[in-house]
């Protein structure tokens, strides 16, 4: 029993040089294949994905920031436009008001002028009519008086007399 245990024990805790050489050879081959063929694409692939994910994250963040800025800009523009529109409307209203007032004024003036002109022309006509009437009256009077007095009265003296009379009349 002792012997068997000893053998088993020594095989359990012994270092076998030939075995170690085998393992070293296979380990070197294994590491060689891993280094040459297996791991580079894996390492590179994962790194590439990590950088792409990182860059897309960065890009997304940048895009978000840009979008926020654009939204803010848009809002500003809208507000500006609204303000401008309001201003334009106000101006337009004011202009219209002014225009209307002006037109009204002008119309009034025109009307007044028309009335004045009418009055003036009426006066003129009246004067003209009066003058004509006076002349007619004078002529008629002269004719009448001539007929009445015949030759004995100097027509010149008579005319003067009659004019004085008419003038007195018109003054009255």
């Amino acid at each position: 029993m002792m012997m068997s245990l000893f053998l088993a024990g020594s095989s359990l805790l012994s270092f076998n040089t030939g075995f170690a050489i085998w393992i070293l050879i296979s380990l070197i081959v294994f590491l060689g294949i891993m280094y040459k063929f297996a791991l580079p694409p894996i390492i590179k692939g994962i790194e590439e994905r990590e950088t792409s994910i990182q860059s897309s994250l960065d890009a997304a963040e940048k895009a978000l920031r840009d979008a926020e800025k654009i939204a803010k800009d848009n809002e500003d523009v809208v507000r500006e436009a609204e303000r401008a529109a309001q201003k334009i409307r106000k101006e337009a209203t004011k202009e219209v008001e002014e225009f209307r007032a002006e037109r009204l004024e002008k119309a009034k003036e025109d009307a007044e002028k028309l009335i004045e002109d009418a009055k003036k022309s009426i006066d003129q006509e009246k004067q003209k009519a009066l003058n004509e009437l006076r002349k007619e009256v004078a002529d008629l009077t002269i004719e009448a008086t001539t007929r009445l007095l015949q030759k004995n009265v100097d027509s010149e003296t008579n005319r003067k007399l009659i004019d004085e009379t008419i003038n007195d009349l018109s003054k009255n």
């Binding site: 063929f37 297996a38 791991l39 694409p41 894996i42 590179k44």
Partner: peptide, 9 residues
Amino acid sequence: SLWAASRYR
């Protein structure tokens, strides 16, 4: 590893 490498490739 080689299988994974081929997939990454």
